[in-house]
């Protein structure tokens, strides 16, 4: 859900940059030298997951796993997402330099919300499947809402395009919900300590 370069207005770009900088600063404060390695590896896993296309009807959608990342990293999701987006911009020119802040915010804030809203339920074995589905679903819902807001705040003429984005992302929300639910279940069985890392 990248907004590409050249669309957003100056106030939106600047406020996005400021929020992203604050979030990244807090996120970096929460991780120490010992934890840099796992965060970096999750950041590259997030990058790679963005290259995976899962089928949806005749087409396909690429995964984002924002919810999963948020649940695993908490505040550290900010720097992890910033790095993954910077590398995507460098390698594929998805998004660019000036919108890096806004794109970081539209993905990290949902990740953080998922952390605070669903994390307690994920730690509980009984509510884990439902909570992780909601984490995946909610992350994409919030991310598309924030993207739509960024567009609508730029120019009222974009309102229709913004509504289109939210509508187009409904199937993605369901898929991300399923994928997050199964992945969390898998991790809980195979290597539960991965789910216990949290830097919030």
């Amino acid at each position: 859900m990248h907004i590409s370069e050249g669309i957003l207005s100056a106030p939106v770009l600047i406020s996005g940059g400021v929020v992203a900088a604050i979030g990244t600063f807090i996120g970096l404060k929460k991780i120490d030298l010992e934890q840099i390695m796992p965060v970096a590896l999750l950041s590259s896993a997030f990058f790679v997951a963005g290259l995976v296309h899962v089928p949806l009807g005749p087409g396909s959608v690429h995964l984002m796993l924002i919810g999963l990342l948020g649940v695993m990293l908490g505040w550290a999701a900010f720097p992890a997402i910033l790095i993954a987006l910077f590398l995507q911009a460098l390698f594929f020119q998805f998004g660019g330099f000036a919108v890096l802040g806004v794109n970081t915010v539209t993905m990290s804030v949902p990740a953080l919300c998922c952390y605070y809203l669903t994390r307690p339920w994920i730690d509980n074995r009984k509510t884990r499947p439902a909570a992780s589905f909601i984490a995946g679903f909610l992350a994409i819902l919030l991310a598309s809402l924030l993207t739509a807001c960024a567009l609508a705040l730029t120019d009222t003429g974009f309102t229709a395009a913004a509504q289109l984005i939210i509508a187009a992302n409904v199937p993605v929300m369901i898929i991300e919900g399923c994928i997050t639910m199964f992945t969390v279940g898998f991790l809980a069985k195979v290597q539960p300590e991965i789910l216990h890392l949290e830097y919030a």
């Binding site: 590896l41 997951a49 995976v52 399923c178 994928i179 199964f182 279940g185 991790l187 195979v190 290597q191």
Partner: peptide, 16 residues
Amino acid sequence: YRTYSYMLGMMLVRSW
């Protein structure tokens, strides 16, 4: 979707 999730999960385990 379940197969993809398990693949991603395995990828995360190995990265970890």
